[in-house]
Design a protein around this nucleic acid. Structure first.
Lengths: 115, 115
DNA sequence: TGCTTTATCAAGCGTCAACTTGAGTAAGCA
DNA sequence: TGCTTACTCAAGTTGACGCTTGATAAAGCA
C-alpha cells in the first residue's frame, strides 16, 4: 500500500477536492463521523445536495458510509488523502532536486571553475 | 508565507489538478521549463488546447510564463503545490490526533479502568 | 396501522469546462 | 517586404457539474 493511484482515480480525487463544500466536509469528517442531515444543516443546503456531494466523495474514495438506524454516518478514509499528498510530494521532490543541482552548478561557476 | 490560501484559490488549485493532462504538465514542468509547442507535441494536442490548460494552471498560481523570442516558456511555481499539500496535511493531522485519542481510550478500557 | 425522520432516486435547469475551428498577433528570417 | 513560427483570441459544440423539485424507500414511533 504505497498510496499510488491510477490517473482516473487521481482525477476523481482532485476533482472532489476542487469544491469548497466538499473540502469542508472532508475537514469536518476528519474530526469524526457525521450524517447527511447534520451536514445539510451545517451548510444550509438541501439533503439532496449534500447527498450528491457525499456520492462524489465516495466515488473518489475519500469517504465511506455505514448504517446506523435511519442514518448513514459518513466517515473519512484517510488513505486517499495520503495518495493526493503523495502525488504532490512527487512533483515537489523532482523540482527541489533540480533546484539543488542548479544551485550547485552556480556555486561551481562562482568558484571560478566554470569553463 | 505559510502556504495558506483563500477558499477560491484552493478551488482553482485543486480544480487545476483535477485534470490528467494538467497534472502531467505540472509533473513535466517540475523537471524544467517547456514551451506550448513542446507540450502540444508531447500530448498530441492542439496548441490552443494546451494554451488553455496553461491559462488554467496560471490562474491557479501553479505555473507562470516568461518571454523568450517567440516562445512563452512555462515554469512551475512550487509555492502552490506546498499550499495544496498543506491543506491536505491539516485534515490528516486532525484525523490522526483523533485516532490517537480513540486508541488511548481503548487501551484505558482494556486496563479495566473503564467506568 | 398510519405518521415522521432520514436519505436516495430521477428529471430538469443553468452554468461552466474541455476541445475544436478560424482568425489574428508578434517575433524572427529571407 | 513577404513568409514562417509560436502563440493567443473568439465563437461554437458537447458534456459534465451543482443544485433544485418531486417522488420514493426504509427505519422508527404512536
Amino acid at each position: 500500500m504505497n498510496g499510488t493511484l491510477e490517473a482516473e482515480q487521481l482525477d476523481a480525487l482532485f476533482m472532489a477536492l476542487g469544491d469548497r463544500t466538499r473540502r469542508d466536509i472532508v475537514a469536518r469528517l476528519s474530526a469524526g463521523e457525521a450524517t447527511v442531515k447534520e451536514l445539510a444543516e451545517r451548510y444550509d443546503m438541501s439533503m439532496q445536495a449534500v447527498s450528491q456531494h457525499i456520492q462524489v466523495l465516495e466515488r473518489s474514495g475519500l469517504v465511506s458510509r455505514g448504517r446506523h438506524r435511519q442514518t448513514r454516518p459518513c466517515r473519512l478514509e484517510p488513505g486517499r488523502l495520503e495518495a493526493a499528498a503523495s502525488w504532490i510530494e512527487q512533483s515537489r521532490r523532482v523540482w527541489a532536486e533540480r533546484m539543488d543541482q542548479l544551485e550547485a552548478r552556480l556555486a561551481h561557476l562562482q568558484d571560478g571553475e566554470g569553463r
